[in-house]
Amino acid sequence: MAIATSPPKKIKLNRIGLELPVYRGGKTTLCAGCGHNAISERIIDACFTMGVDPTQVVKLSGIGCSSKSPAYFLGSSHGFNTVHGRMPSIGTGALLANKQLVAIGVSGDGDTGAIGIGQFVHLMRRNLPMVYVIEDNGCYGLTKGQFSPTADVGSTLKTGVVNDLPPIDTCALAIQLGATFVARSFSGDKKQLTAILKAALSHRGTAMLDVLSPCVTFNDHEGSTKSYAYVKSHDDPLEELDFVPFFEDITIDYEPGTTQEVTMHDGSRLYLRKLDQSYNPTDKMQALRALHETHARGEFATGLIYVDPMADDFLTSLNLVDEPLATLPERRVRPPRAVLDEVMDDLR
């Protein structure tokens, strides 16, 4: 595979004329080396290169170290650090109020897999257009290192306590629930994560990203299957990804049969160079099988695991007017006197 043209590196402004620093946020208060910080950097990158309009973005999160991170990217966007495990409902509400918003949600594996599993399930079912990132470290960072529901059987805490409950695989769960974009990545894999984030921003529907994001303070020891070293050595990418946004006129050449091209809802294209000849991310059964098999080997299947780029999203199904409901003028939301009269007559 070869990229035919590559844009000159000098360009400092993006598609909508903004500089990179506009996409930065406040100074992080997370631990140095925390995987979550790396993910924030990738979100900044992806939003900058995609030319996402920060005034149209809402950043949403639950509670946890991970959920603090929206304060550290896109500082000129609105954000809402909500309550533990319930960010999906706040996000749903925000999008009902204004269907034009670009919603970026950040959650943790505890925030999603434990207290928030109910809202997560229904978010996946609804296919609400939103990027939903789980920063997955297998533990509760903010409450100092307890196991989370994504911890593997046999994985240990710093204190030596062994986890003996099976993990929830959020990707497998999401696919079963009808999610339309499911990916797994690693905070340490810059290229893959950025490509997936860009594709996620091009998707119309819920884009669920489970990003392995080691907690360097509470879960980075030997015996943990979510440590940096363990994840790095057990990362098993399904494909190599290249993303071409809709506004770039680039063609990618590839040998027939080696690469699958996926056209996203906005016209962007995703090139998936197959590492395993048989993998097809639009096939649910294959996706589930891949997740199962890699997990059984003690590895993580990463990359775009499942995608259905053209499925109907929740907001479209509501048949809303084109403008945001939030700012409709009074005359469009308060019916005229004649309506009240009619309603009264019906009750007489």
């Binding site: 809402v58 809402f80 909500t82 309550v83 319930r86 999906p88 409902s89 706040i90 996000g91 749903t92 509400g93 925000a94 999008l95 009902l96 109020a97 204004n98 918003l101 109910g118 809202q119 229904h122 945001p324 409901l325 939030a326 700012t327």
Partner: peptide, 15 residues
Amino acid sequence: IAALGMAIGSGWAGA
């Protein structure tokens, strides 16, 4: 919980 979460999310976003 979700019902009020959605109401608050949309109230925040101006509905």
